[in-house]
Design a protein around this nucleic acid. Structure first.
Lengths: 238, 238
DNA sequence: GAAATAGTGTCTGTAAGACATTATATT
DNA sequence: AATATAATGTCTTACAGACACTATTTC
């Protein structure tokens, strides 16, 4: 390959998609949007991850683009957002070579359904155990969603990620419940508490009444930008 | 944002860059290439990560593109390759909005310097503790390289990644040495051996003579595609 | 005071870290 | 036989998991 002196060669499409997780009704759920129904669009009427083309005029960088798309769908402006990866090939989009940069968002569960106001597209929350069937999502979004779930579940084993799925302040019993939901198994209370408090990433925020009989201590994250990494995974039992 | 019916809008450049690590002369090193010297090119003469534009005609997908660029520089065709992340913004390249998909390669140390035959660009191995100074690399490659080093060092704490830095078959003392080089600290032999063998990802490949006084058992990776994840990090001491 | 949930204490098994010891090759 | 390195064994300590127990609230 010699140096390309000219920039006049075909460019792939550049997109950003966002996998948005929340725990609602005691289940881990993901936000999907419906593709427009026009037959001229690819995958008309199919469910897809929220996202779309990078707008070179509006988006300063990929993260800003992801934040914009997330805000358009959820009206949430400061979620936990991390890069999941990118998917690009000549075949994933019938319109041509395209590459999407995928982000991964954890938000505190909104009680209301997603705001369908601003954006015309229909949106909905789907529990992970009740997703639209196999190969049901548009593009390669099935594969991307699988990767996102895998990443989330594996990181939950050894990080404080689930804390981002709760509104602050939250109690340790609440946080433990989130861990159990995402991990899909019970977690020992004593060990859980010791572990969380030993990592020293929570600030006390006063007792929280009302939730249960006895009030529990509320906590806030000391640093909402980054999760804490534990030195061991949960239940190394194999 | 309404649905874009036309595809006639500006597209960012799409690139793939590869961070290639090897252990040479008992040090972790990274492969860099020199940018062309023409003043018309961005960052002329500066060191950069190997990579470049996706070729929509030749590259079926991002991984294939990364493999092609890696092969062009090292003539190695089956390294360990994983996605590191992507960097995209309107400002990282003076030629316009661009996004690069960055891969992360671990290869067994070539004794010879990188093949400069096929490709005209000058290439060189740089020990991580003797990199060209701060903000010396082209584009945002300083930042990308930092992220790659961070990822490597953190994964080494709890995965079998360093095994990809050795040619097969390798012995446990050799593997331990690689861990120590990448981690930058000593590792206890007994614990190391127990841990590696307990994870059951190595196949015996006969005793290896010549390396030292007493021959050591040689091993091959049972699965060269994926590293093994340990249930704990090394030295949880804090 | 009964019930429910928050929070703590105790015991045990496992495994890592430190370091001593044994084993097997080369010279 | 001396030496160097491979491989294993022993001891201690830390900590997760299991589970019992105590504490504090509401009704």
């Amino acid at each position: 390959m010699k140096t390309r002196t000219s920039l006049d060669f075909p460019r792939p499409f550049t997109l950003v998609d966002v996998v948005i997780f929340a725990v609602r009704a005691d289940r881990l759920q993901v936000l999907l949007v419906r593709r427009p129904a026009h037959e001229s669009d690819p995958f008309p009427g199919r469910w897809a991850l929220p996202g779309g083309f990078v707008d070179v005029a509006r988006d300063a960088d990929l993260l800003a683009c992801a934040q914009r798309k997330l805000f358009e769908k959820t009206a949430i402006d400061s979620p936990y957002l991390e890069q999941l990866g990118s998917w690009g090939s000549m075949r994933r989009d019938p319109r041509g070579w395209s590459a999407t940069h995928v982000y991964f968002a954890l938000i505190a569960a909104p009680d209301a359904p997603p705001a369908e106001g601003g954006n015309a597209a229909q949106a909905g929350w789907f529990p992970l155990d009740a997703l639209p069937g196999r190969r049901a999502l548009a593009f390669d979004h099935d594969e991307i969603l699988r990767a996102a779930i895998e990443r989330l579940q594996s990181k939950v084993e050894y990080t404080s990620l689930p804390a981002f799925l709760l509104p602050e302040p939250f109690t340790l019993p609440q946080l433990q419940r989130i861990y159990e939901i995402v991990l899909g198994r019970a977690v020992d209370k004593s060990g859980f508490r010791t572990r969380m408090l030993a990592m020293d990433f929570l600030d006390e925020a006063g007792y929280q009444s009302g939730e249960a009989k006895r009030p529990a201590m509320g906590y806030r994250l000391r640093d909402r930008r980054v999760p804490v990494v534990f030195p061991r995974t949960f239940n190394p039992r194999r």
